[in-house]
C-alpha cells in the first residue's frame, strides 16, 4: 500500500509532527516502503490466533489507591521550558 499527500498530512496532524510541503513526497515514499514490509503479514493465517499483548500473558499489577507522590514541583519544574507561579506556561489558548 502506498501513501499519498493526503494521508501524510493526516498522519502529520495525528502525531503533531510538521511535514514541510516540499518534504511531503519524500516522507510518503519512505513510509510507503515501510508499509510494504507490513504487507508481508497478510499472507499469515491468523484466524484462530488470539492477539498477544504480554509475552508471559501477565496483566499489569494494580496498587492500593492511596497517594504515594510527594510534592516535588520545584525540582520537576526546574527543567521546564517556561514556568510561572508553579504553572507550566504555554501560548494563550482562550482569548
Amino acid at each position: 500500500m502506498s501513501l499519498g499527500k493526503t494521508e501524510v498530512k493526516y498522519i502529520s496532524r495525528l502525531t503533531q509532527i510538521d511535514v514541510r510541503e516540499e518534504a511531503v513526497e519524500g516522507v510518503a515514499e519512505k513510509l510507503s516502503n515501510i508499509l510494504e514490509l507490513f504487507a508481508q503479514m497478510e499472507a499469515a493465517d491468523t484466524k484462530d490466533v488470539l492477539p498477544m499483548a504480554h509475552p508471559l500473558d501477565a496483566v499489569q499489577r494494580l496498587r492500593v489507591d492511596v497517594v504515594t507522590e510527594v510534592d516535588q514541583h520545584e525540582k520537576l519544574q526546574a527543567i521546564a521550558p517556561a514556568v510561572a507561579e508553579a504553572h507550566y506556561l504555554v501560548p494563550q489558548v482562550i482569548e
Partner: peptide
C-alpha cells in the same frame, strides 16, 4: 489490519 494482526503474529512467533 496492522496492530491486531501484528499482535497475533507475536503469539505465533512466541
Amino acid at each position: 489490519a496492522y496492530y491486531l494482526k501484528a499482535q497475533k503474529l507475536r503469539r505465533m512467533v512466541r
